[in-house]
Write a protein that binds this DNA or RNA. Structure first.
Ligand SMILES: [Mn+2]
Ligand SMILES: [Mn+2]
Ligand SMILES: [Mn+2]
Ligand SMILES: [Mn+2]
Lengths: 220, 220
DNA sequence: AATTAAATTTAGACAAATCTAAAAATTAAT
DNA sequence: ATTAATTTTTAGATTTGTCTAAATTTAATT
């Protein structure tokens, strides 16, 4: 089967919404895709006939296992291209998403598998999100938000909660990137800000908001 | 301005047809694009309103200078991706065209300029066709068909007349690729076949048909 | 010059993806 | 349990790109 760009964008959006919401609604999906609820309903009918979603009108919808498989293929393409753009073409992480949004729809299987090999079979994209392999399997992240890290335990930054250039700017300024090892030395109850220590650098403070957008894994 | 995939395919096809035909016709373009003459007429009207083609009904059409500029941008993207696919991902030349046909429509200028830089500003694609630079300028090829090369003059293979896997197979078998230096030792009048000499290898014969599909430049 | 043939364009239809406005169903609040 | 608010779906249009079949124009032949 072959899918249109619109179909692929819907499938991927449903996958992402399913991941963080117990039930995905028409309005939510319309918001995500910058489209209208009526358009979503139209597409759901189409995706149902193609057996990519379970759908009963007025009673919600979800991806079928076939739909999930397709979604993972698109996500694989998206994240491999993001990795390529960041690693080989030296784009900053806040620039790669929009371009990958287009590249992900070039669906030659051979292209993607060769790209994967060329890139050295990367496991995570520039935002720390896992890249599905050619079987659709990917690492299940054990990452937690920095705000819930125990004091004085070394952890490694493994991802970010959003990909805005504002966050990127702040992280650059504070010398934090994916892979950076750090500890939380103290938590201030007043505003939930955290005192952070990175190896050679003097300790410094970060806001609760920033901490919630930094994903970390306990050090190996 | 931003163009649809369909518009871009038409513009590029017109550019290519203009290159080898004194006048481009509706039927010819329909044939090229695997579409119907009626569809071509429809699109010509649209491209005219966008000032990309000169068009008077029943009296032919041609690209405006703006149209040519757009065409060169698409061709630049196409050929850079072909180069990437062949050089970095190790695709054979008969595989790169179809994939580039999709990739060429991802139109981020920054992406393409960075790709160009990453590839080392290549001058020709895997078929020996020149790649426009970011100003739209490209080498005007001084290549001639091997069938019109003078006897005993060293020349270098610089391109091919078609990109079929059949031609590729034959050239692989005969150890000829782009960059190969060779001489024509003898021309047989009976069938216009040519006796060819490549540096270390024993001389061998090639057909007129093959010779016409091999573009060469006089050696420097 | 008249006729025939070929190329091109128009007329009308259709599929994909979207929209607005109105109707229907579900959920929440009295 | 009604009523009100919210969500979702339908009805009917619109845009883009395509098609077939018919009409028109241009080119080629007698
Ligand atoms: Mn997309
Ligand atoms: Mn990402
Ligand atoms: Mn194309
Ligand atoms: Mn080429």
């Amino acid at each position: 089967m072959n899918f249109t760009v619109a179909e692929e964008n819907y499938i991927k959006a449903i996958w992402h919404l399913q991941r963080y919401n117990n039930d995905v609604t028409t309005n939510l999906l319309a918001g995500q895709l910058n489209t209208r609820p009526a358009s979503v309903t139209d597409m759901l009918k189409k995706l149902k006939t193609k057996k990519l979603v379970h759908y009963e009108k007025y009673h919600g919808f979800s991806l079928t296992s076939e739909g999930k498989k397709i979604a993972l293929g698109i996500i694989r393409r998206h994240r491999l291209w993001e990795f390529f753009l960041a690693e080989k073409l030296h784009f900053d992480w806040d620039e790669v998403h929009d371009i990958a949004e287009d590249l992900e729809h070039v669906s030659s299987k051979k292209l993607i598998d060769k790209l994967d090999e060329y890139l050295g079979f990367p496991k995570v994209d520039p935002h720390g999100d896992p890249i599905p392999d050619n079987q659709g399997k990917m690492e299940t992240s054990s990452a937690i938000g920095l705000h819930e890290l125990e004091l004085n335990k070394t952890a490694e930054v493994s991802g970010v909660g959003n990909q805005s250039s504002e966050l990127l700017e702040l992280l650059k300024h504070k010398n934090i990137r994916i892979g950076t090892k750090l500890e939380v030395k103290k938590r201030f109850e007043f505003d939930q800000s955290l005192e952070i220590k990175i190896r050679n650098l003097p300790a410094f403070t970060i806001s609760e908001q920033l901490a919630k957008n930094l994903l970390v894994k306990y050090g190996k």
